[in-house]
Amino acid sequence: MSVTDTGTVSWNSKAFDEIVSNDAERPVLFTNARVLTMDPLIGTLPGADVLLVGALIVGVGPGIVTAAQDDNAIVVDCTGMTVVPAVVDTVALIGGRGRRSEYVATLTPGNAGDLLVVPDALAPDVASAQITLLSRPEQVRALVAAGRPVLWAGTDAPGRPSAPEAGIPAAQDMTGSPRVGVWIDKNDFLHQELTADGRYDETRGGRPHAYQGRYWIDGTRIDYLDDLGFWAFGEFQGEELHHAGYTMRLG
């Protein structure tokens, strides 16, 4: 490692440049790390590798680096580093999951490439690594989400996503949207009208205005803020709107 003129630690800078400009979806291999997978089958692996292809983890364990040249992988040397899941399942941390398949966030092949790289001294366990991220982010070597860097060598990665602004957003103008109209469930119990001014009005079992409020659509997700103060959500799946156990179609 070296220190730049601004005092920022330079860590695997060549590999980082290759990852940022990785338009060819080359694999990315984090190698020579202590890996706390949080997977009860795989466990903790000393001197191990984590291989990402796109947004997914495709391999975890020792010896993967031997295939790195064959696959034209970008290699990130993590000597002296610990790799942990970037998304923490606190229930799993205290052993509260009954089955391996129920673990929400582990460094398991097939799971999302969300990982955190921290010096060994600051990461005796997953909780300590997370505390380092929250309290001393300048000590973080890498924070990766879905295979893309968010932090690198303690600084923001270029082009990293930014969090949505806090607070309730302005009403959406849904004029002309194909999702405006009355959505009716298959039993004709729930009628949910989405209006062009970003409001909804529900009739339930013939009871008009059972719930009313504002809504926002982001991709296939719809969020509701009821005038009573509670939040709810739904999801558009093809021609259907799924919400609170109901499956609706435009009437």
Rank of each mutant, 00 (worst) to 15 (best):
M38P: 01
A170W: 10
M38W: 06
V58L: 03
Q172M: 10
L133H: 02
R204M: 15
V35N: 03
D223L: 11
V118G: 08
H191G: 08
D70K: 10
V75L: 06
G245H: 06
A15T: 08
I222K: 06
C78D: 05
L115G: 02
F236V: 05
L56D: 15
A24I: 10
G54T: 09
P158E: 07
A48G: 08
G63H: 00
V84S: 08
A153W: 01
V9C: 01
G61L: 01
T82G: 09
K14M: 12
T247E: 12
D5L: 11
V140F: 06
Q69L: 14
A146H: 11
V91H: 12
A146N: 12
W152S: 05
V76Q: 06
R214T: 11
M38N: 10
P208E: 01
V60E: 06
A170S: 14
R160A: 15
L143F: 07
V28Q: 00
H209Q: 13
D17A: 15
V75G: 02
S162A: 14
V87W: 14
L115E: 04
T44I: 14
I184M: 12
E138N: 12
D70H: 12
T203V: 09
V88Y: 04
A105W: 02
V144D: 04
V3Q: 13
N72I: 00
A67I: 00
H209G: 15
S13F: 01
V182M: 03
A170R: 11
A157T: 06
L36D: 04
I168D: 07
Q172P: 10
A145G: 13
G80Q: 04
G159M: 07
Y200R: 00
N32R: 11
D5C: 12
H242W: 13
I217W: 04
N111P: 11
T37F: 02
G95A: 07
V9T: 14
T4Q: 12
R136W: 11
G63Q: 03
F16C: 10
G147N: 00
L194M: 06
R99T: 14
V3I: 11
A232R: 08
A86W: 02
A86N: 03
D77H: 08
D218S: 15
E202D: 15
E235W: 09
G176N: 07
Y103L: 14
P178R: 02
P169R: 08
F16T: 12
F230I: 11
D218I: 07
D71K: 13
E165N: 10
W11K: 00
Y246F: 15
V3A: 09
A129Y: 01
